[in-house]
């Protein structure tokens, strides 16, 4: 048996899924009150998920669960660094060109447009490295843009750094929708990769042989 995902990474990974779901949902409760990026959510969406007239509740939930979400994400990130797991995820600065090319070839393969996967070193392929590093950057972006629109006067330097209140709000919104998009692709890829891969994020181990 090969140890693939440490216990702390697995717990924070699954906890992050629940917390992000709460943050995105309560965020939509807030967004409803001034839905400027129309027609992003159609009316039936608001009705179906009972989003209407829940601004106060949405804000209270959002500004409560922002704490465990940020703490959980930080624990995950710090542990990734100190455990050395980050070496599997972060692309090497000198291989960015190759990384982009390989990720493109992985995407072609996944879409059935290429026969072979590019050679990969380590447990993640180039597309996974981009996706998993990207989601970490997105998390940092959500914290920064969130603070920028939560305290735009006290944290004015951050708000102006992010292009002002309205633009910071747009960043925060796009990142939130990015998590939903990430989730959809992630789930499809996990289903395709099969039980052994999913089990490694549940029980932590993989078996020698075909490592995927």
């Amino acid at each position: 048996m090969i140890e693939k995902h440490p216990r702390l990474i697995r717990w924070t990974h699954w906890l992050n899924f629940a917390l992000l779901a709460i943050m995105v949902w309560s965020g939509v409760l807030i967004y409803w009150a001034n839905d400027v990026y129309r027609p992003f959510f159609p009316l039936w969406f608001y009705n179906f998920f009972r989003i209407n007239h829940r601004l106060a509740e949405g804000m209270a939930i959002h500004f409560t669960f922002m704490w465990p979400t940020a703490v959980n994400g930080t624990v995950y990130f710090v542990y990734l660094l100190i455990s050395g797991q980050s070496r599997e995820i972060f692309p090497h600065p000198r291989s960015w060109l190759r990384l982009g090319r390989d990720a493109f070839r992985v995407a072609l393969y996944d879409l059935g447009l290429a026969k072979e996967l590019p050679r990969q070193d380590g447990i993640y392929n180039a597309a996974q490295k981009i996706a998993y590093s990207g989601i970490l950057l997105m998390g940092m972006g959500s914290i920064a843009s969130g603070l920028a629109i939560y305290k735009p006067i006290q944290a004015y330097w951050l708000t102006s750094l992010l292009g002002g209140y309205d633009f910071a709000r747009l960043i925060h919104f796009v990142l939130a929708m990015g998590y939903v998009l990430f989730l959809i692709i992630h789930v499809i890829q996990v289903l395709r990769a099969g039980w052994r891969n999913l089990r490694s994020m549940i029980a932590g181990f993989d078996l020698p042989g075909e490592i995927k």
């Binding site: 967004y31 400027v36 601004l55 804000m59 209140y165 309205d166």
Partner: peptide
């Protein structure tokens, strides 16, 4: 100033 509404507009 820019006055901000709790709904999100300015």
């Amino acid at each position: 100033t820019e006055l901000k509404c709790i709904e999100g507009w300015t």
